[in-house]
Design a protein around this nucleic acid. Structure first.
Lengths: 234, 234
DNA sequence: CCGAAACATGTGGTCGGACCTCATGACACC
DNA sequence: GGTGTCATGAGGTCCGACCACATGTTTCGG
């Protein structure tokens, strides 16, 4: 923002794209010019253009695909959650961010979300997403990895009711980042059948509280839910 | 996690580094082999290796520098906040994430942090960081851009007392992402001299509450502080 | 006339080799 | 012993080529 330092070759295209995004010249769903065209336009090599686009791709700003037609090329998307999720996972892997703090942060966001969901203007249709996931998790034949996946989606769906995209995104990315650790911990622990019954009951309780718009109750239940599961496994 | 799909050339490097990080073979401060060496080791081109390293750099996992000596080459670091900050800023620019939600999320994290800071085991030295920033902001000659920078650091320093690295990191990155917008809004509004007096007073009140470990009061004050400033400018 | 197979086109993905800038440490020279 | 020069090796940039892929077009057989 402050120092320009446009001397780095790949920065010029990065800045140009950010400016275009900010000014509205480039918006969600638009296609960027081809890498070769951008290279010529800015007078830099295609490698540097690729460098910049790669950065945007890692951030979840654009998506690149080979081939031709409307689905090919580099397209402006908005996929912050998976991008942040990967980054978070890497930082947890490198011990830069303690897993304990990730779980704690997730609990903060989820309790906040459910509290605020009580007063938020969501429609019954939005709640149905969560209900479908709740029903899907009743299947006894579900492997634990699939269950935890649905579990994550259930929590995200409920939290989304609060209406804050940033909080939902961060929650989703944190869940994505720790999914691998959870699956490992579940397999290492064993006795999944006993655990899953408790989880189902807790989920139903949380869902009912949200449905009744009892924010404080929902918040307390989800806190107990996460704390219980955390101490059971990790 | 699910499909391996190591057919992408740059993914093999990415996976290898993540595994090395997870197993401890690679730790903070270590230097990666040179790009040419990695290329030969995995039997891929240097361009693909650069692609992978670039991804890690964007995530704040490594840092690359030219030259020779201990500060050169690619080194494992942990800089999630600036990495997330840039990504967040881009998403706000592309309207993928509403600024309002970012501010709201920041308020959630900060109130949570100050509440928990009351019971956290921080030392007086940690509080001194915030105190120094508080004193520095007393300077009347400070341009608004510098003030907001110190302001951001002050808030991060206080929040860090809660002891949760993930929350601190996210707060810092959100503040970084919206800094440009705040500076613009302040300049557009004018009358900075009137605003800054109120801000100083609010900061002192928040600091005192934290120092006295009155979590609830600190939390309330910081909420009012953020809400007031938000309505004054944006 | 129509459907299907072959082809042309343009995209990102990969490659390898070249040259540049830069920070450092070693070495020769005062 | 201090100092300036140079060799070294790292990342940064560029070029030009080729590959894999998805699509749109053309062509050919029925």
């Amino acid at each position: 923002m402050s120092e320009s330092a446009t001397h780095r070759a790949h920065d010029v295209v990065l800045r140009h794209i950010e400016d275009s995004l900010r000014s509205g010249t480039l918006k969600l769903g638009d296609r960027l010019p081809g890498e070769r065209a951008l290279a010529e336009q800015f007078g830099i090599s295609r490698a540097s253009v690729r460098d910049a686009i790669r950065s945007l791709e890692v951030m979840g700003i654009v998506r690149s695909a080979t081939g031709s037609g409307p689905n090919s090329g580099t397209i402006v998307v908005s996929d912050p959650s998976s991008a942040l999720g990967v980054a978070l996972r890497m930082h947890v892997a490198s011990s830069g961010l303690p897993l304990k703090d990730v779980v704690e942060a997730r609990m903060m966001m989820e309790t906040w979300s459910l509290e605020h969901a009580a007063a938020a203007p969501w429609t019954p249709e939005q709640l149905d997403d969560a209900r479908r996931l709740l029903d899907a998790m009743e299947d006894d034949a579900l492997p634990s990895q699939i269950f935890t996946l649905l579990d994550a989606q259930f929590h995200v769906a409920l939290s989304a009711l609060a209406g804050n995209v940033v909080v939902s995104t961060m929650m989703e990315s944190m869940r994505e980042a720790i999914r691998g650790y959870i699956d490992d911990a579940v397999l290492r622990r064993g006795g999944w059948d006993d655990v899953v019954h408790v989880l189902r009951e807790q989920h139903r309780g949380i869902f009912s509280a949200v449905e009744a718009r009892e924010g404080e109750l929902a918040s307390r239940l989800v806190r107990e839910h996460i704390e219980w599961f955390y101490h059971q496994t990790l």
